[in-house]
Design a protein around this nucleic acid. Structure first.
Lengths: 185, 185
DNA sequence: GTCTATAAATGGATAGAC
DNA sequence: GTCTATCCATTTATAGAC
């Protein structure tokens, strides 16, 4: 429900992108309709096709730069495990969340390919290079799988102990798990 | 493509259940059509409603006992981590796979509730009781999240290092990770 | 630039014949 | 018991008016 924009193509495009980020996060690609997205942006569905060609084109633009992990790879390396764990157990926001968007769209026949490519190029590969050492690609893949698995269990499957449990307890178990995977020990 | 069964209600029901297990595994609940399921069973779609009330009723019967973890919890506890890791990295079968069915159906608005309940009752809770000790529920939830995360990354996201990588390398990292989570150390 | 109207396809469910 | 025919809702995409 951003203020309805009228007459400005760039602003309308941006409003549609923002609405799509929210809708794809909330419902996943398949269950977010172009009508709902257009409504949130204050326009009609025809403009999705006009500006992005198709619903899939809209998704492609959304995920083009949504999964970069650069922000997480700063600071002391020996404490990254704990920092990742704290990032994981943070309260869910109700807006745009790339991880949730991924989990809820990955099994879509239409969106699957786009999502897979984005994760491989924007997350796993850069993390493997940053980690370095033996089995860097395998370790990077495993680290990402732990992040995805936790988010899936907590926010999609609503596994009680992970969504309601004590945050510090979870960090105490998750932090060392991630740190060891990254250190390769 | 089981041999088309005719005239026997029990056999037809069983054939539909088996076809549904395969179709839901392969495409997920939303993208497996009742027509496809009926075709695989050698009958027409009307019989799905006749025997299961609705497509969702068919799913409910499929998942009623599909996620029990009893089979995995046998043998020496100190080596369960490695055994779970070997189970995880096994070659994918092309038939019924409860984990894959879960991952591909969990974000469905229709099927989500059924899947969540099944995982909580058939997997997380029994595992927590089996583990015991401090933070048993949290540790059980985390163990399951690692299993799901790996399967998701390997079989849905097709993360290269996990699907193509050396099995022993993956077991060497995954085994201790799971063992420590279960031991709580 | 944006909208209305509609095309075209899909998918779950039901009625009734056999 | 099983099938055929049909209904009804939904969704993306397009044509053309304003």
């Amino acid at each position: 429900m951003p203020p309805p924009v009228t007459g400005d193509a760039a602003a309308t495009r941006a409003a549609l992108l923002d609405a799509a980020r929210h809708a794809f996060t909330e419902h996943g690609y398949d269950h977010a309709g172009v009508r709902e997205i257009a409504d949130r942006a204050g326009v009609t569905a025809a403009l999705v096709n006009r500006y992005f060609g198709s619903k899939l084109g809209l998704l492609a633009e959304v995920v083009a730069d949504s999964f970069t992990v650069g922000d997480l790879l700063v600071g002391d390396r020996s404490t990254l495990g704990e920092r990742l764990a704290r990032y994981l157990v943070r309260p869910r926001s109700n807006g745009f969340d790339p991880t949730l968007l991924l989990l809820r769209s990955a099994s879509s026949p239409d969106a699957g390919g786009v999502m897979r490519a984005a994760i491989a190029e924007q997350a796993v590969r850069p993390l493997a290079e940053w980690l370095g050492g033996n089995d860097a690609r395998e370790r990077a893949g495993l680290v990402m799988s732990v992040l995805f698995g936790f988010a899936l269990s907590r926010d999609v499957l609503h596994t009680g102990p992970l969504s309601d449990g004590d945050a510090e307890t979870l960090v105490a178990h998750l932090g060392p798990t991630l740190q060891r995977l990254m250190d390769g020990s």
